[in-house]
């Protein structure tokens, strides 16, 4: 554990909780992509199956349980409790275009051919692109609520902080996992456009709207 990894995890946690609280308080999931949320649920489920097979630390297990619970809680709010507020007309990204290639890639580039390792690798590849339906939705509607922007910023920062963590771990522990590093870089690059808009608009008190 180092400061970059901890900050990344806390940023990730903040993002997930921010989204849950936003939906709960406003009684609405308008502007949120249900498809991205489905992808994140697949990501956490396939990655955290190791809750049952290996123990790293109380911290790790606790965070995994929180991420899983919050993710399924978000899906419940979006597709059951506040379903009428779900803006599915603008959530039109075809997620099979992300699900299938990630799955194929996880069979081609993987450290070891075991079911658990392929599922873990799949979760890494899918996570890298899971935000695309949400970013697509923002580009289609041309705007995002400020709280949604904060959510996206926290979620994007998490993997960027993990990149610093991997650089740190490379020098201090000789840790080098190219699968997770390359996927993490791709994931962070996808947010760059949004980061720019966030810094130039949202942080200056303006609403995030596209020209």
């Amino acid at each position: 554990m180092n400061i970059f990894r901890l900050s990344g995890d806390l940023s990730h946690l903040l993002a997930i909780l921010l989204l849950l609280v936003k939906i709960w308080k406003t009684r609405s999931c308008a502007g949120i992509s249900g498809k991205s949320q489905i992808l994140f649920a697949i990501v956490y489920t396939t990655r955290y199956l190791d809750l049952f097979t290996s123990f790293v630390s109380v911290y790790n297990s606790f965070m995994k349980v929180v991420f899983l619970t919050a993710s399924y809680g978000t899906l419940y709010l979006m597709f059951f409790k506040f379903k009428p507020t779900y803006d599915h007309n603008h959530d039109s990204f075809r997620i099979l275009y992300l699900i299938i290639p990630s799955l194929v890639l996880s069979f081609i580039i993987v450290h070891v051919y075991t079911v658990m390792e392929i599922l873990w690798t799949y979760s890494i590849y899918l996570e890298a692109v899971a935000i695309m339906p949400q970013l697509f939705m923002v580009s289609r509607t041309g705007e995002a609520e400020t709280i949604t922007s904060h959510y996206l910023f926290a979620l994007g920062s998490y993997r960027a902080l993990y990149i610093l963590n991997w650089i740190y771990r490379y020098y201090t522990e000789d840790f080098l996992d190219m699968i997770v590093i390359i996927a993490g870089i791709v994931q962070t690059i996808l947010y760059c456009d949004f980061f720019y808009l966030y810094i130039t608009k949202v942080l200056k008190g303006k609403r995030l709207s596209l020209p």
Binding site: M63, Y162, D177
Partner: peptide, 10 residues
């Protein structure tokens, strides 16, 4: 790689 060890990140 570290593939024989459990993944210690989230």
């Amino acid at each position: 790689s570290k593939s024989e060890e459990p993944h210690d990140e989230l």
